[in-house]
Amino acid sequence: MKIAVLIKQTPDTAELPKVSAEAVSTHNVQATMVINPWDEFAAEEAIQLAERFNAETVAISLGPAEALDGLKHALAMGVDAATLIDSGADPNAIDLSAAAKILAAAVQAEGDVDLVITGKQSVDGNSSAAQVGIARKLGVPLVTNVVKVVDIADGSATVERLADGIQETVQVALPAVLSVGKEINEPRYPNFMGIRRASRAQIPTRELDELGLGDLAPLTQWANIRKPESRRTQVQMIEGSSPADKAEKLVDALLAEKVI
C-alpha cells in the first residue's frame, strides 16, 4: 500500500498579523516559514497508518524551493520519501483550481497511491479546498475532518469523521482522499536521528510542465488586497467599588450596545 501526504509550507502563525497587503499582492511575504500546523496531523497519521498497515509513505508539496523545509520536517517525523513540485516563477497564477489539478497530477505521478492524506486547512490560504479538488480531479471518494482511521482492509477504509456536530462512521473504496482533523493524533516532534536522516535526504523536484497538465488558466482573480479595517482599539475599562458594582456597569453598557 502507498500513502501520499500533502504538506504545505506556511508562515509561522505568530507572524500572520504582520503580513502586509503589499507583500501578499506581490507574493513576497517575508515571514518565518514552517510546516502548516494542520499538516503535521496529516504527516503523523500517514506514519502511523504505515506502521499499522505496512505501507510506504511519500510527502508532496507544491511551492517554491523554500517549501523543501516543510518536506524535510515530514521526513524528519518519519515519512519515507518526498517530492517537491516547483510552483514556478509566478505562484500568483496558481489559483485553487490550478493547484488542485497540479496536486492531483503529482499524486498520480507517484504511481499506485491508495490513500491521500491532507491537513484540514492551510493557515495562509484558509480554503480547505485542496482536498476536495484533488479528490474530484482524481475521481475518487473524499472524507473530510477524519478523526480516526478504524480499519483499512479489502480495498476499503473505514473512518470516523466529526463535522457540523455530527459524528459518522464512513466507509470508502480505495483509492480515496482523507482530510484529517486535530482530534486524530498527537503529532510527534522529530528526533535527532530523524532530523539527520532528513537533512541528508535527496528530495526530487518536478517542474510543472513535467506533469503533462492541460489548461491551468486561473478561474478567479484577486483585487483590492487589503488589511481588515482596524477596529476601535480604545478599551473602556469598567471601574467599580466591588465585583457586583463592576458587573452591573458592564451589563448596562452591553444593554446599551444592544448585544444582550
Binding site: T13, L16, V24, V123, N126, T220, Q221, N224, I225, P228
Partner: peptide, 17 residues
C-alpha cells in the same frame, strides 16, 4: 470577499467563466 492569512488580509474575488 475572502479573508485569508487567518483573517489578517481581505481580498475581492472576481470570476472568469
Amino acid at each position: 470577499v475572502r479573508a485569508i492569512y487567518s483573517n489578517n488580509i481581505l481580498a475581492d474575488i472576481t470570476f472568469s467563466g
